[in-house]
Amino acid sequence: MAKHPVTLTVNGDEHDLLIEPRKTLLAVLRDTIGMTGTKEGCSTGDCGACTVIVDGKAVTSCMVLGVTASGKEITTIEGLASDGELHPVQQAFINTGGYQCGFCTPGFIMASKALIDENPDRTEEEFRHALGGNICRCTGYTKILEAVLKAAEKIRTTA
């Protein structure tokens, strides 16, 4: 089937690509562009491992056709650090040990970043609920939540 020309802006860099319409954004990021930080867990929208931020909104990239992301601003885990400094959410995950095998971590970090950007004043319960679409197979949720709350506090106080 005919490939479509698309321009994806990923972490500020433009990529002019020819892609098949059936390729998901997740597959384009990982296989076509070669950025493997974004993970594929379930591939059915249930686990959140593939979460990226598109035009400011966290979405499961396994549910998005790559062709429909043309012209949009995409941020992946690779784009969070700036000037050699980790993003506060990344740093908080390291400081609290908010990961075990690490497979769910990029998705959790991207989902948390979008939540904190939207409203850093959520309660623990609200963050827990809002992160319900992210699953950690190693079940380290306590530390993950601790990391998110620490990052939110840091961002609140430095903003």
């Binding site: 929208g45 959140g48 966290a58 979405v59 499961t60 998005v64």
Partner: peptide, 9 residues
């Protein structure tokens, strides 16, 4: 419905 990531789509 689903998660925030699903509701954003």
């Amino acid at each position: 419905i689903g998660s925030i990531q699903i509701r954003n789509l």
